[in-house]
């Protein structure tokens, strides 16, 4: 078993490079721990921040337990409503990751299908779609997200805001990130569609949709995976930014962004921990995901070796 793994590790380029890259390993470890903590938040967290009965206003703004005046029940302190900050961060990471993953998947599916079709068909469709992408690219992602968010708030009835906010956020972030996928997919498809294996299936008379999905798609997944990882970090950041600006998730569902926003209000009155720990979590998460993305990009790019 171990011998087989060793041999596989030598033969598999990606695994080999990973096993010789300490930084990537560290980043993967940290990312895994954070994702694990977030997924298992309801088991790991000391309290449930969604449960109104579990916290008490009397406990509000307690410093971390090792600081004078700290309470051993709240390891890294509490926020302005008396919620345990550690639990809030765990649940917040879960929400941030959920929104990030959902929106990046949405962007990926949308971008790849558009890019693949545009690259394969070429001509007018390609020109039309890619001009839209250019326009999209000239707007900052955060503006696109704010715009869509604002429109959704205007259209949707007031009482369903909170329930639908995650869906709206996903779509808003997804729509501001699809261009990267579309461009990458289109460029790779251009290369692949002129290869002889695609011509062979065209001679057979295979349906274009099937050629795109069965023949070309698997061959362009490499660069797509890289964009996926790099843009995951961007998506998480966007969610945090939107929440920080107060247009993201509702305040009763703590995400990393909302926690940071609450924290900034108390920053100058000495309660540094409310902003420090969520920010630290966000930074570490983003950096480790980014390192993984860079590793993937380098590993899959033969020119850099």
């Amino acid at each position: 078993m171990i011998a087989r793994f060793r041999r596989y590790a030598i033969e598999n380029e990606l695994l080999h490079l990973f096993l010789h890259n300490r930084v990537a390993q560290l980043a993967a470890f940290i990312a895994l721990v954070m994702i694990g903590g977030a997924v298992l938040a309801s088991f790991v967290a000391p309290t449930d921040p969604y449960d109104l009965a579990s916290y008490d206003l009397l406990d509000s703004l307690l410093p971390p337990s090792w600081v004078e005046g700290g309470d051993p029940r709240f390891f890294i302190g509490t926020d302005d409503q008396g919620r345990d900050l550690l639990s809030a961060i765990l649940y917040g990471t879960r929400l941030s990751l959920t929104v990030g993953l959902l929106s990046i998947s949405f962007a990926c599916v949308l971008g790849v299908s558009v890019g693949l079709t545009a690259g394969y068909l070429g001509g007018r469709f390609d020109a039309f779609v890619m001009r839209i992408a250019d326009v999209q690219l000239s707007l900052p992602a955060i503006l696109t997200a704010l715009l869509i968010d604002g429109i959704a708030r205007g259209i949707l009835p007031q009482q369903s805001h909170d329930d639908l906010m995650i869906v709206v956020l996903t779509i808003a972030i997804g729509l501001s990130l699809w261009v990267n996928f579309a461009r990458t997919a289109r460029a790779s498809t251009f290369v692949e569609k002129n290869k002889e294996y695609v011509q062979a299936t065209e001679i057979m008379g295979m349906h274009p949709v099937r050629i795109m999905l069965v023949q070309i798609l698997p061959n362009i997944l490499g660069p797509i995976m890289v964009i996926l990882t790099v843009d995951l970090a961007v998506a998480i950041l966007l969610e945090a930014t939107l929440s920080f600006l107060g247009v993201g998730v509702p305040p009763n569902q703590p995400s990393l962004g909302t926690l940071i926003r609450i924290g900034t209000e108390y920053l100058f009155s000495g309660e540094w921990w409310i902003v420090a720990f969520p920010s630290l979590t966000l930074i570490v998460l983003i950096v480790s995901v980014n390192i993984l993305g860079d590793f993937l990009r380098d590993a899959l790019n033969p020119k850099l070796r």
């Binding site: 002889e196 294996y197 011509q199 001679i203 698997p218 061959n219």
Partner: peptide, 20 residues
């Protein structure tokens, strides 16, 4: 004819789909 006429290409490195 799409079945009756088949083609063998020049470059064996690009005429087979590497992912299958």
């Amino acid at each position: 004819v799409r079945r009756q006429i088949q083609m063998v290409f020049q470059d064996p490195y690009s005429s087979l789909n590497n992912r299958r």
